[in-house]
Design a protein around this nucleic acid. Structure first.
Length: 173
DNA sequence: ACGATGATGAAC
DNA sequence: TTCATCATCGTA
């Protein structure tokens, strides 16, 4: 029986949680079918001072979820077409999230939500099997190594924050 | 290189 | 109420 990642896992600083998510499984159940996707690409967004993080705008109707408890989904609509899947992490009151950018099976954050049929209905839902979308511990991946790069598509955040190495990826050796 | 396509937040 | 912008992707 695979281990389900619970609140304790998410209730840590985002720069710890984000790399730990690499190699874990994003699990989606719709109808009778349960599918697992190995996470290979994530980005960390860390607090109100991170100018690339939506929480840098303060608490708004959209960003309020990030200011709450860890272990919930933050899902928002972008470019008139795509849903972005984020996991709220770190302690209650500190707004932080991890963007799931890709898996071994599906590359790209917009494609991922489209293929898994994830929309705004998941926003503010708990990361738990009862939701139909959750995370499970992975296995040892000897043939992959982790790399860090700047985040994608955040030039608006300015020279400092757009260059922070907050993107974590698994690449094959 | 650029258009699709609509929510969001800030300015007015 | 308008307006610029946007944590993207497919086609060219």
């Amino acid at each position: 029986m695979a281990k389900i990642l619970a609140k304790k896992f998410f209730n840590r600083p985002v720069l710890k949680v984000a790399p730990d998510l690499l190699g874990t499984y994003l699990v989606r159940k719709h109808g009778r079918k349960t599918e697992r996707f190995l996470i290979t690409e994530v980005e960390a967004y860390d607090g109100g001072g991170d100018m690339a993080c939506h929480a840098s705008k303060g608490m708004t109707p959209r960003t309020a979820i990030m200011f709450g408890q860890p272990g919930f989904f933050y899902v928002y609509f972008i470019y008139g077409m795509y849903w972005m899947l984020n996991l709220v992490v770190d302690k209650d009151g500190h707004p932080a999230a991890v963007l799931i950018r890709g898996t071994r099976e599906v590359s790209g954050p917009g494609r991922l939500t489209r293929q898994l049929n994830i929309t705004g209905s998941f926003n503010k839902k708990e990361i738990h099997p009862k939701t139909g979308l959750w995370l499970e511990k992975g296995e040892k991946l000897e043939d992959y190594k982790m790399e860090r790069t700047p985040r994608i598509g955040v030039a608006y955040a300015g020279p400092i924050w757009s260059k922070k190495p907050y993107r974590f990826i698994l690449v094959q050796r």
